[in-house]
Write a protein that binds this DNA or RNA. Sequence first.
RNA 1: GCCGAGAUGGCGGAAUUGGUAGACGCACAAGACUUAAAAUCUUGCAGUGGUAACACUAUGAGGGUUCGAUUCCCUCUCUCGGCACCA
Length: 844
Amino acid sequence: MEKYNPQIIEKKWQKFWQENKTNFCDFDDETKKKFYNLVMFFYPSGAKIHIGHGYNYTGSDVYGRYKRLKGFNVFEPMGYDAFGLPAENYAIKTGQHPSLTTRANIDFGRIQLKKLGLMYDWEKEIDTSSPEYYKWTQWLFRVLYQAGLAYRKEAPVNWCPSCKTVLANEQVIAGKCERCETEVVQKKLKQWFFKITDYADKLLAGHEKLNWPEKTILMQKNWIGRSEGAEVKFFVIPTEMSEANGVEESLKQATDERSRDFARDDNKLSVFTTRPDTLFGATFMVVAPEHALITNHQSLITNFDEVKKYIEESKNKSDLERTDLNKEKTGIELKGIKAINPVNGKEIPIFVADYVLSNYGTGAIMAVPAHDERDFEFAKKYGLEIIEVVKDVQKHKSTESTRAQKTQACFEGEGVAINSDEFDGLTTAEFKEKIIHWLEEKGLGRKAVNYKLRDWLISRQRYWGAPIPIIYCDNCGEVLVEEKDLPVKLPELENFKPTDDGESPLARSKEFVNVKCPKCGAAAKHCTETMDTFVCSSWYYLRFLNPDLADKPFDKEIIKKWLPVDQYCGGAEHACMHLLYARFITKVLFDQGYINFDEPFLKLNHQGMILAADGGKMSKSKGNVVIPDDYVKKYGADVFRLYVLFLAPFEQGGSWSDQGIVGVKRFLEKVWNLQEKLKSQNSKVKTESQNSKFLVLLNQTIKKVGEDIENFHFNTAISALMILLNEFEKQKEVSIIHYTLYIILLSPFAPHIAEELWSRLGHNKSIFFEKWPEYDSALIQADEFELVVQVNGKVRDKIIVPADISESEATKTAMNLDNVKKWLADKEQKKIIYVKNKLVNIVL
RNA sequence: GCCGAGAUGGCGGAAUUGGUAGACGCACAAGACUUAAAAUCUUGCAGUGGUAACACUAUGAGGGUUCGAUUCCCUCUCUCGGCACCA
């Protein structure tokens, strides 16, 4: 018999699949249940398909092939997320136009993917950078705009004063431009946002429906960061006013003056707090450097120069730096103005400090140093008053709790109110409810919900993206491009590098920019920004079902039948961004009546990361990047597929090893050689009952492999297949029936060799038209088992006993073992623990 | 810093409604085959002691609950993913 030669058989079967359209998915097939098996599509940035893709796609493909054998009509598509910064950078680096490099990368990627033997339906390919696709990304922008969910406001961007370009966060290394190492500054630009915050509660509620990893849902929940509390308004008064008239009088005056106009905020400082019960402990206030209060009160602030300098300095710090608890907090008092604590009329100082962020809550806080660690630190540094208002009533009996000691000076937990006038003695929960009521009555505050989630900034001052379909007209303002005028085509620019005034490269094309207003016909300017690539990828799963539709984004009937996605597979790093954006867009399309479901991905699985052999990350600079092609060439795709899935639990990932891969190579060679042991059709089939141990293992393996694939536990499924193979090897002859079952079990993992062995049994059709085997539940239980005998919880002996042994019989047998008697001696037995089918534990 | 996950032999890993720690594979060692090597096959393989039977130790560190803890609880250390313009 010839040797196993993957190079020949893999080419043969890949050709066969293509010619016979084996993987074509007929959406109208009514005979089977649909199964939409989606994997995060490929980003053709210039880096080739690497091990990470190979890992992700193989795992998902094994699952898809298994589902197909289980009788589903499986749809498994692949496409290209082709817009974005890395693709643009690659083009700049190679000096070619991104449309050319992207096309080349896609073509190469497709060849690489086909070599891995993935079950993709190549007739449904999509490319987000094609006008046929981004026409509908622009259509999506229209949907959001018309629903009042797209708006423009000022927001800061990273700006390199030397390169005169906007930089992505990735291009800023330690506060400096990655190219010229100039200090990066923040520059404000008017930019487009999607109002994802309007959907915060819907996004939270939707989690109930999802069969997703717990941790992913938890991360999204924390990212959305819903918290309940109160909005409280503090009056701001000039210090001289309180000095002249006294606090009470000036407060009264201020209240009288403003009472008719509560909404006017310029003389009030509004804060959000989850702990309104600590209001009596608020001894100072802090505003973010960006807060409007500062500019509004510029004339009153006596140390404005100093304040201005501080604001300038904080501009260049990232949120991460600003909120780092380990860094010493800085701040400046706003001299000349004071705030009045609404609950007790006390006059308290106002600071500006960058540990308060402008984009969370109201951009200002009431500081309660006795009960918040950050405020506590700040108060100690600047010598501010600390008033304890919550007593810890929980008995901390453990003396070793270092946390309790650490927070002794600053108790952040819940307890009972003290130093809070008539509220003393209330529990935190009671106090919260009462004080909110009190504040509402006095018009000083109200119940409020706050979210960490921020609106989605979609503007990019970049060339390689979908242009935002908006025209600015002097007469009409923002005008949405009509649907009939879509797509707004990306102009073929020769120079697509960012311009030196912060505008998008699209501003270079006069033809693109100078347009007529669709409403009034006057000369107008086209928006030159492109959309965040996440917008393209937020709806791609819809387009796969109708990649060629020219007059609409998707076909309602097919959508109805095929969505939502049944299984989605991709990296956990997408938990808070792509996965949240796709859910948001889906909910918007649902609310606007375009689709009939409001969650895109019912079930989700993540793959881990494949690390280099030394356990470190793979990187180009280290030269340790593993490219699947090299291994496919050397060992074949089946070996590659098996090895990536065998080396670690799928959701965890692990390190690649050039040595380890030979193990699965040997495994497939053994499977191949099994052909020689096949019983000839004529030989008398011996009764299988003689071999009952083998039959038990066979049935156990069918059960385990199926269940493991269902749970994405591919490594243990492969291990079970290896164990069964080792048993086949011990046999003189292998029954064709068992062999047939085995090939089917192996086929999702190693489709090429399975097809070849299958056809050698005389079959004409692909093995993937077969049925996944059922196991015989009567045959998965062996008739004897190994009983573990413990004394005081330590294993002292093991014996083989019949499966139906009684407790008393088992105990009696166990106690009579020499090695057990030795330990029992003449000691008294306190109790005996018996675990059925497992163990006996004698406790002395 | 904040949010999330993880740590088991020389290596990748297995085992969790609390019940035999180390399945399966790699590496390594010995043997068979061979003129020889490779490949293949057989056997061994957590550590310490012992010819062995067996005993003790061991799942990042320390403590706790339990007849029994890799699994549950507390504290700590380290590693990884995300932190909103990489996608």
